[in-house]
Simulated assay, not measured.
Amino acid sequence: MTLKSSILLTGGSGLLAVNWFYSKRSEFIVYLGLNERIIQPNGSNVVILDFSSEKNLIKQLEKIRPSVVVHTAGLTSVEKCEKNPELAYFINVELSIMVANVTKALNIPMVHISTDHLFEGNNLNLSESEPVHGINVYGKTKAIAEKFVAEINPDSLIIRCNFYGWGTSYRKSFSDHIINSLRNHQVINLFDDVHYTPILAEYLIQTVHDLLAKRAKGTYNVVSDDRISKYEFGILIADEFKLDKSLIIRSSLASQSNLVRRPADMSLSNQKVKEFLGRKLGSVKQHIVQLHLQEEDEKIKEIQLL
């Protein structure tokens, strides 16, 4: 009998970690590393992570000896980061440093989940070699975290992405917001001047595992093959799910004076990962078709009930 490899996911109650668990639970022993919010999905192994010191965290990881640690924990709300920069720095930077130090000390591969929110937003389809320049607290702390992780654990895998998928009862994704609003016949406003390269969580997760299988290290943009606006993304979802797209109203980030400053273009190039893996990552339309097919999957229903 072959023993399964194991994965430890920090930020275990977050949207990405939950999708990761349900996507890979049949292939791996998956540990959900929890902190404030406690969940217990069927078949999960829950670990209440002790971030009070590296020594304590080392003891916990020595007990379970994961094959890889995927660091998904982070404070991702742009508004919350701006209102509480100390908390943003602690969660986004200091916890990342701790995980990098611990995985380095125990010789455990680390995957650090970053963001596409690292630049001013004046250029499109940026590569991994482009110098980062965050324009708000969220972007700046994620950029600092990347720098420390790469310095502390050079063998780590840093993943820049912007993902969506089916959310839980307590955390909805951008696609959930669009689908739920349109199904409830509610008007929604989506920016037509904000562009990005979103990827379905399932494809993000599988691509990371493909990179791990080939012992990749360093920074990779794991994004879809398409640059698209938030408005266009909403229209594609409405078309695929046969919803009323007339309820989607064009709006602009430029007109939102009450929001924390954000990059208008977060699109990233996935050329590096395509060349490394020898395949495309798929178009946004292809991913939305898959999102629709997932809706009837039992594991998706389990996620939604959490």
Rank of each mutant, 00 (worst) to 15 (best):
A216I: 13
R183P: 03
V187Q: 12
R250I: 07
R250G: 04
V260S: 05
R215P: 01
K245P: 12
E130K: 14
N162I: 10
S181F: 00
I249Q: 15
S169R: 15
C161V: 07
F174H: 13
L190A: 03
I188G: 01
Y203M: 15
I159T: 05
F148H: 13
N153P: 08
N258W: 15
N136V: 06
H195N: 14
S246W: 09
D210A: 15
H195G: 04
P154I: 13
Q256S: 13
F163W: 09
D265A: 00
F174C: 02
I152K: 10
S169L: 14
T207E: 07
V260H: 08
F276W: 06
R171Q: 15
S251Q: 10
A145L: 08
N270G: 14
Y170P: 12
G167T: 08
Y170K: 13
T168D: 13
I152S: 04
L200N: 00
V149K: 05
M266W: 01
I205W: 09
I178W: 00
V273P: 06
R261M: 09
K142N: 01
D226T: 08
M266F: 01
D225W: 05
S169P: 09
F191C: 06
A143Q: 09
L157Q: 02
T168Y: 11
K230E: 13
T197G: 01
K242D: 12
S169M: 08
S246I: 07
I199K: 00
R215T: 11
Y138N: 06
P198E: 03
L277P: 11
